[in-house]
Structure formats: C-alpha cells, structure tokens
Design a protein around this nucleic acid. Structure first.
Lengths: 211, 211, 211, 211
DNA sequence: GATGAATGAGGGTTCATTCAT
DNA sequence: TATGAATGAACCCTCATTCAT
C-alpha cells in the first residue's frame, strides 16, 4: 500500500502478476501439446505459439529460449508425480494405493497422454546434461518419497524387507516408465496390463504369508 | 561420349553387392553414433556423414531420406533383442537365463550405450505411426518369443501360472525399458539395480515354494 | 468516465515543458552512450531505454521513431562543433587557437569519446540522404565559420593566402575527422599525433617568414 | 599427378579451386555493394545473396558468418591501399606521386565509391575489437610503407625532416580518410579539394627553399 | 505522462536434399 | 559410385513499434 502510493506519481501501467502467471501457463499448455505431438526438437516455436494462441515473440517475454520451455515443462511434470506418491500414502495399504494410482493414470486420458512426454524427457536427459540435472533432482525427490513410504510398509510387515526401499522405488518407477513405452506402441489393453503390473509389483514385494 | 557408353554396359547390374552392403553398414554405424549423441532430430546428415567417413550425398545413394536411416537402425536394433531371448532359452533355468542376459547387458558397455537409443525409439514411435508400426511388429515377435519361453517354464512348474505369459513378457520388457531410463539419468550402481530387478522379476513370477 | 473527463481538462496543454525537455535530454544521453557503444543500427531501443532509465514506450512519446533519435543526436553534436571555432576566434593567434582546441579535445576524455560518433555519422550520411542533409547543413555553417576566421588571419598576414579560406577549412575539418579514425584504431599517442597535426596545419597555412 | 591417380578409384567430383575462388569474389562483390548501400549492420544476407546472384545458403559455404564477409572485405580493401603507396614510390618525386594517386582516386569512380566503405570500417573498428585488430594490422603495414617512403624523400632533401616519417604518414592517411567524409556529404568539387589537399600536404612537408 | 504487454516483420543461420561432375 | 557444389524452406530469436492501463 505504502509502496504503491509512493510510486503513484510516476506510475505507468501496473504490473499484473496474475495475468502473467496465467499466460505463462497458457504458453506451457501449448508447448506441452506440441512437444507431445512432435517431440522437443521437431516442435517449432511457431507451432507452439499457434497452439497457445499467442505470438511467437510473446513466448520470449516469458521464456528466454525454447529450452526453458522444455525445462519448465519437465519441472511441472515431475512435481505432479509427487502427488501420486501422496495418494498411495493416504490410502491405507500399499496394495490399495497402487491400485488407486494406476486407476487414475488409466482413467484420466489426459494424464495418460501427458505421461508420454516422459519418454522424450528421458531421451533428452540421456544427452543434455542440463536437462539430466533437472530430471535427476526431481527424480531423487520422487525416489526418496516412495522409498520412505515403502520402508514404512516394510516396518509394518506389509512388505518384506529383502529389497532395499530405494531400490524398490527405483524398480517401480522403472516399471511404470517402461509401461509408458507400451502405451507409446499403441498397446490396447492398458487396463489389463496395468493391473498385471500392480500384481507383479505386490507379488515381488509383499511378505509371503504361508497359509 | 566414351564415358556414356562405358556406363551403359554396366547399367542395371549392381557393381558390387558386398561392397554396397559394407558401406551401408558403415553409414548405419555412423548414424547410430550420431543418433545416440544427439537424438534422431538433432543429428544432422552432415554429422552422420563425417562420423561415417563418407560424403553427405553418398548417404542418399543408400537411403532415400534421413528417416530411412532411422527406420533401418530401429530394425537392426530390434532384431538384436531377439538374440537375448535365445540366450535365456539356452540356459537351463529362467532365473539363470535372466542373470546371464543382465550380465551381458551390463558388462558390454557398447550394448548398454546402444540401448539408450531405445528411449528415443519409443519416443519417436509415440508420434510417428510408421515408426510405431515397425517397432510394434518387432515387439510382437519379442513378446511372442518371451511369452512362449515363460509358458514353458510355467508348465515345468518353475514359474507360477498366475500371470499370463504374454503379460509377463510385456512386464519384463517394460521393466528393462524403464531401467534404461535410470541409466539415462546417470544412475551409477547399474549392477546393483539390475540384480535387484532380476530378483524382483523372479520373486514376482516364481512359484513360491514353502520350505 | 470520470477518468476521461479528468483528462479532458488538461488536454492540449503540455503539462510541464521543463520536465519534458529534461527527460528528452535524459533519453538522448542514453541514446548517445548506446550509439557510441554499438553504432546506430546495432543499438536497440531496449538498450537505450535501459541506459536512459526509462521505459521503451516512453521514448516514443518524445521521438516518433528510432531514426529521430539519431537525427536529434546528430544535430546536437554538430552545433557543439561551432563552439570550438569560437574558441579559436577568441584566442589571439591562429596557431594558439589550434593548440587550445586540440588540447581540449584530448584532455576531456568525454569529448574524445563522443567524437567517435562522428565516424558513424559520416558513414550514415553517406547512405541516408536525410541524414546527409542534416549533417551537410551543419557542416556548411562550420565551414563558413572556420573559413571567415581563416580569411581574417590571412588578411592580417598571419596565414598566407595561397589556399582559399573555405578549402582550408574543409581540409582542417577533414584532418580532424581522419584523426578520429586513428583514435578508433586505438592509437595510443594521441597527444603526439595531434600536436603533429597542429604543426602540420600551421606549416601548410602560415606565411613563411624567412628569418 | 600421383595423388590424383591414387585416389582415382573412389574419386567423386573433383574439387575446383578456381571456380571456388571465383565465386568467393562474386559473393564479396555483392557484399561490398550492399555494405556500401546500407552499411554493415543494415545490409542483410538476403540482399547480399540477391546482389551476388547466389543463394543465401551458398554464402555460408564460403564464409562461416556475415562478419567474415566484413572481415574479408576489409582485408581486401586495405591491401589495395598498399598499391597506392607503390605508385608514389615509382613516380620520381613525392609531389608527383601524390598527384598521381589523387588523380586515380578521383578519376576512377569505382575507387572513389569503394573508398566510402572506409568510414564504415573505421566506425566498426571503434567498437568491434576483432575488426579493429584486422584494420590495425593492415594500417600498420600501410604506415610503415608510407613512412619509409617519406623517410627516403627526407634523406634526399625533398622533404624536410621536422616531422617524423611515421607521424607524417599517419597525418596523410588521416587527411585522406577525412576527405572521404567530405565525399560522403556529397561535396561536389572533389577535384579541387583533393588538389588543395595535395598542396596542403606538400607545403606542410616540403623543404622550404629560400629563394 | 509513463509503463507493462504484445506483436508483425524480418535477421542470421542451418539443414535435408538435389544436381553436376 | 562417390563427391563437391548449390539451394529452398524453415528455424530460433530479435526488434522497432503499438496498444492498454
């Protein structure tokens, strides 16, 4: 308030952070759509601007270069992965948590579609060290979250302790990453495969209870 | 004039099929190196020609377009995957077969390095239907081979029959694909993770024998 | 509505002429710095606005286009040249006047630095007829002033009359312009060269007095 | 010869250095015309390619960037200046040599036109250190050549020894550079001014012979 | 008056591909 | 066959300028 009145004499058009954030998202949505359709390198700034409904030049007022679009998108994606871990957390049992998240991933075609970007991200990370750093940082957070979750279930006796929590987390992530590859190939029976995957995971990790 | 008539004599007859095949391979080797380093779209024909030690124009006498290079490379890659299944086949038990192939993949850095291209291939398949078709065809052969292998082990009682052979095959492939993602992120302890993966798979699939 | 009526009251009356002139100068100072550093075409309005401490849009409320900035700056520059002639005028002898002005040009690094813009101005004049017209008009005033000065010294017998006053003026201006080129090349011994130039000029123009 | 026959088996189209050199010149001619008309920064590669009668991309097979066109042109220009010194050298007397070169510069409108680029070059040198280095190197050769020439005439007694040869050379170069500025302003009586300049120079440098 | 926001029109450069030898 | 030479079609990014507040 004080600031505003002090400057008021020479104030021009006031900045509007909300509008800026909104447009930023608008651009990122367009970029995501194009990257999904064409890949990071084949997608052009012109396409992105058309998809987002802004001018090319305007993109550059929000992102200094195309690569920053990629980076921002990756960060957005990876943080959203953490939400899924929270879901498993909140459900009572590990097995139920898995089922829930799987169902979400399958049920929401938007999510399924978006996840396809993960392949491009990993491929890009395998060559671009800066991208790799971004992905790796987020990945470590994800592994940590899943690992501690698994550890808790291990302590509770629901999962056996043979595999180290972090390794288990990495394997689960790998399996899900790999399943995206199946979707990429147009495999139809997504539901079946994912439930099979859930069974696969739980059988591999659950304490074997001798009847 | 003399030139023209000289050419006329040899027209229609491929001068030297072996030399052609050899150069074709030479070009593909260069292409693979570049695609690994830069990705399909960022790699340029100039780079490929330099890496292969031929002129750019020469590439076009073996492949009508850059995309054909990509396709040829993908086909080469996918058929080599079938060899791994044969290995598991030849080893006595499923568990041993897995261990063997894993060890090969890890031990040979060339193979490990090359496998990184798999991410790019899957990413490309997720958008390019023609590429997807090629990959899918090869993938189905791979699933079939692994599936029948698993089925045999299930019949033999070494693996339990809860999961359908094909689904199991797909899951294993997924897991391995996903592990390539870990390597792409520069995960150091490859050996540990892959042995964990083997244990993961066998625990998920083996008949649980109560001691 | 309220806004509009408020504005209407002050319409047509320049709010504060002094403030306007002041800001105009502020912008021109920023422009000069940028033009010196980058040249007319490579300097951007964004840079100029940053250097001047105003917004880009604000520049356009004082100058209708970038080229007008250039023109205004050139006019400013050229009128300041006339001041130097006055200096020579006021000193008692031609030789002394030359020495004085040379010393000023060298001593004040600001002036020396600014003079570098002269090259850009001349280069621009060689292609842009509108710029050429502006420069030429000012140049003719300068030649006239220097010419009449030289004529007076010729009458007084201090300078010989072999070369026509205007031609002499043009030659002196040329020599000084050319010396700016030496400075542009980073020639270190500015002092030496300029005193040599003074000697050069006086020897060429002075009546040769046989001792 | 031996080389050629050794490679003959796999030889493709043989390189043609003459044709390359020719096209290089063709491009440079187009670039010079455009740079004269628009200046280094305002001239576009598209204009240059049109003027030279080649495609834009073709330019980049001879020069890695636009700036290299500028550099090459500068070098070409500066070496041609050395030829003028040789002319003075060959003529019997300093005064006659000056007259000759001046006449050439004036008589050949191509030369006069081209010399206008000098202003742009100096302006560019005043900001771009790499360009400055190129210009300076060539300039030093020019000063050395002119300086030694003047020294020889000084020894011979045709020129007085009051001003050091190098300084005299620099002053003469400056004067000629500055005269280009006059031409840039569209000064009509080039001939008069240049002959006045010659007289100016000789009066400043010649041994004063007391009748 | 002054500023934030937006954009059309290029600018330099690259690239897959074709043509000529 | 194999290579040197050439090019049209973008591509990323920038900039002078305008509009809205």
């Amino acid at each position: 308030m004080t600031n505003r009145s002090l400057k008021a004499t020479t104030l021009g058009r006031p900045a509007n952070p909300e509008a800026r954030a909104q447009r930023r998202e608008q651009i990122l949505r367009g970029a995501r759509a194009c990257f999904l359709r064409k890949g990071f390198h084949a997608a052009t700034t012109a396409e992105i601007s058309a998809e987002a409904g802004v001018s090319v030049a305007n993109i550059y007022q929000y992102f200094p270069a195309k690569e920053h679009l990629i980076r921002a998108l990756i960060e957005e994606d990876l943080t959203s992965d953490l939400d899924l871990v929270d879901m498993v957390e909140m459900s009572g049992s590990f097995r139920k948590g898995l089922e829930m998240t799987s169902r979400i991933v399958i049920a929401d075609p938007q999510v399924a579609q978006d996840s396809m970007l993960r392949l491009e991200i990993l491929a890009e990370a395998s060559r671009n060290p800066e991208i790799a750093a971004v992905v790796k940082a987020a990945d470590e957070r994800l592994v940590a979250a899943m690992g501690s979750l698994i550890a808790r279930y291990q302590e509770r006796g629901e999962l056996h302790a043979e595999i180290k929590p972090d390794a288990a987390a990495r394997l689960i992530i790998s399996l899900y990453d790999g399943l995206i590859g199946r979707v990429a190939l147009g495999e139809q029976s997504d539901v079946e495969l994912i439930t099979a995957a859930d069974k696969f995971i739980t059988r591999a990790l659950e304490e074997i209870i001798i009847p």
